[in-house]
C-alpha cells in the first residue's frame, strides 16, 4: 500500500499524466449534469462533483456493444459464419469515480463471471480497468446505505482511494492495479499529520442512512410476491425505465442483429425489465404483461432474489439515482421498508 499527497490542481495534472499509459475517463460537467468522458486535450475534469446523472457502468458494460460480426454476402467463403468483433482492451482508468459506483461493478460481477459461463467482454474490460475514487463527505439526501455501500469512506470497490482533505487529496493504493496507477500518478510524500487526518475521517451527520433490509432474508419469496403492496407501489409508475437505465447495478440486456449492406453485427444493448417487450413471447403471451408485474419483478430481483441467490446483500449500492429520476416519486428506500416489515 502506497500513499501520496496531491494538491487539487496537481490531481488534475496526475490524471492528465496517466493518459500516457491509460485511456483515462474523468467527470466533466456537460450542461447541467456531470458525466464521465474520455479525458482529451482541453477537457476540464471536475473532481468536486457529487454524482453523475448516468452511472459510469457503461465504461465496463457499454450501453451498446458489438459482440459478433459476419457477412451475409454468399460470394465470401465465410459467409453467415459469426466471429468475435475485435476489441480494444488497453488499460483504462476511471479517475474520480465515487465509491458507490465503483462497488456497483462488484455487485454486477456475479452475473457475468460465473462458474458455468464467463462473459468475455465484461471480464476483460473489468480486468483492464483501474478505479481511482474520491471519498468525501458530500453524499446527498437521496442516497442510502446498503450492505454494498456503507458510506463515503467505504473503499471496497476501489483500486485507489482519494481522500479529500479540503485543500488536497491523499491517495492510497488498495490493489495491485491501484499500486501501478498510483506509481504513474506521481504526487508528494504523505506526512504523518496527513496520514492521521485521513484516519480520522468519518461519515458526517449527512451521510446516508441505511434502508432497512435486515429481515428480508427470512421472508418467503411467494409471500412477498403475492402481497397486495405491489399494487400500491406500482400505482403511479409510467414504465419509463429511467430507474433501470440510470441504475449502476442493473445488468439486463437485449441482443439484436443489424445488417449494413451485406455485413452484419450482433449487438448487445441495455434492456429494461420495465418494458413489456422484454418478456413478450412470440406467441403473444406475456408473463409480465402488466405494469404491476414488472415493477414487482424489478424490486423482487434487486431486494429479494439477488439477496437469496448470492448472499451479498441487496442488488443496490444506494446511489439514489432511481429516486431522483423517477417522475412519480417511487422510492426504493420505501420499498425496502415495506418488504422488510411485511407480514403475511
Amino acid at each position: 500500500m502506497t500513499t501520496k499527497s496531491f494538491t487539487k490542481d496537481a490531481l488534475i495534472k496526475a490524471a492528465d499524466g496517466l493518459r500516457k499509459s491509460y485511456r483515462v475517463f474523468v467527470p466533466v460537467k456537460v450542461g447541467k449534469f456531470h458525466e464521465f468522458k474520455l479525458f482529451e486535450d482541453g477537457d476540464k475534469p471536475d473532481f468536486e462533483y457529487r454524482k453523475t446523472r448516468k452511472s459510469p457502468k457503461g465504461l465496463i458494460f457499454p450501453q451498446s456493444e458489438r459482440m459478433l460480426e459476419y457477412s451475409i454476402d454468399e460470394h465470401k467463403p465465410d459467409h453467415h459464419i459469426m466471429k468475435e468483433s475485435p476489441k480494444d482492451y488497453s488499460p483504462q482508468v476511471v479517475f474520480g469515480i465515487r465509491p458507490y459506483d465503483a462497488m456497483s461493478f462488484k455487485v454486477m460481477d456475479v452475473n457475468f463471471d460465473t462458474e458455468d459461463y464467463k462473459d468475455p467482454w465484461w471480464i476483460k474490460r473489468y480486468a483492464a480497468t483501474t478505479l481511482v475514487g474520491i471519498c468525501r463527505n458530500d453524499l446527498d439526501s437521496k442516497m442510502f446505505a446498503t450492505e454494498n455501500f456503507s458510506g463515503p469512506y467505504d473503499i471496497r470497490g476501489l483500486d485507489v482511494a482519494l481522500y479529500d482533505l479540503g485543500d488536497k487529496y491523499i491517495a492510497k493504493s488498495l490493489t495491485e492495479k491501484g499500486e501501478k496507477a498510483l506509481a504513474a500518478m506521481g504526487g508528494n510524500d504523505v506526512s504523518a499529520a496527513e496520514l492521521a487526518a485521513i484516519e480520522k475521517l468519518t461519515p458526517d451527520t449527512n451521510a446516508p442512512q441505511a434502508a432497512p433490509t435486515d429481515k428480508i432474508k427470512e421472508k418467503v419469496v411467494n409471500d412477498l410476491f403475492d402481497s397486495t403492496m405491489w399494487e400500491d407501489i406500482a400505482n403511479g409508475c409510467i414504465n419509463c425505465g429511467a430507474c433501470t437505465f440510470l441504475c449502476p447495478t442493473c445488468w439486463c440486456f437485449d441482443i439484436q442483429d443489424e445488417i449494413h449492406k451485406r455485413e452484419g453485427d450482433r449487438l448487445r444493448i441495455w434492456d429494461s425489465c420495465m418494458f413489456p417487450l422484454y418478456t413478450l413471447h412470440a406467441s403473444g403471451h406475456n408473463p409480465r404483461g402488466k405494469k404491476v408485474q414488472r415493477v414487482r419483478n424489478r424490486f423482487m430481483h434487486k431486494i429479494k432474489y439477488y439477496l437469496d441467490k448470492y448472499e451479498k446483500g441487496i442488488m443496490c449500492v444506494g446511489c439514489g439515482r432511481c429516486v431522483e429520476a423517477c417522475p412519480v416519486n417511487i422510492d426504493i428506500r420505501r420499498v425496502c421498508e415495506l418488504m422488510n416489515n411485511f407480514t403475511k
Binding site: N111, D116, V221, W251, C252, F253, D254, I255, C273, H301
Partner: peptide, 16 residues
C-alpha cells in the same frame, strides 16, 4: 422469452 440462454440477460426468470 430468452436472449442469452446462459443466465445473464435477465428476462426469463420465474421468481429467482
Amino acid at each position: 422469452r430468452m436472449k442469452c440462454g446462459i443466465g445473464m440477460c435477465g428476462r426469463c426468470n420465474v421468481g429467482g
